[in-house]
């Protein structure tokens, strides 16, 4: 009878059930102890990671702000103008995608052999200008309009 054995069998004066209960209790205490110790360790690690995350987030925000400052359009424009001599592109220098091939073709063509000097020397009429890509835009006239604008 296993149940009766637990209650009746004695080992050095202690019933088996009592020893088993003691072992269970000890095991429970140890489990709780190690669990708490482990949890404490984990909590400390989580705290460290939290701290690292907070510091990283702080650094990311700092870097974001720094990036926004460095990439400010006004600053970029000033620097590009100051050091590279760049400026907003006039409309007449713009071309649609379809015009790129024509521009490349013109750039690849060799320059005309008869220079202006030779033309003047020979007195020959200048050859007809080779057709070029249609200008994308014409320069605006700055002439005074007929009526003064109000």
């Amino acid at each position: 009878m296993p149940l009766a054995f637990l209650f009746e069998k004695r080992i050095r004066g202690f019933r088996v059930i009592e020893i088993a209960a003691f072992l269970c209790l000890t095991a429970l205490v140890l489990v709780v102890y190690f669990s708490k110790a482990h949890a404490g360790h984990e909590t400390a690690e989580i705290g460290d990671v939290d701290q690292q995350i907070a510091e990283t987030q702080h650094r990311v925000r700092l870097l974001d702000a720094e990036l926004a400052h460095l990439e400010a359009p006004a600053r970029i424009e000033q620097l590009s103008q100051q050091y590279l001599g760049l400026a907003p592109i006039p409309a007449k220098h713009e071309t649609p995608d379809t015009g790129l091939m024509e521009i490349a073709r013109q750039a690849a063509e060799p320059p005309p052999k008869d220079s202006a000097k030779s033309k003047a020397a020979t007195g020959a009429a200048p050859p007809a200008k080779a057709p070029t890509a249609a200008p994308i835009a014409t320069a605006k006239t700055d002439a005074k309009p007929a009526g003064a604008p109000l």
């Binding site: 409309a91 007449k92 994308i136 835009a137 605006k140 309009p145 007929a146 009526g147 604008p149």
Partner: peptide, 13 residues
Amino acid sequence: DPKGSGHKADAVG
């Protein structure tokens, strides 16, 4: 209108 007062704002295209 050539006599319009806003010609100088006419960004090309």
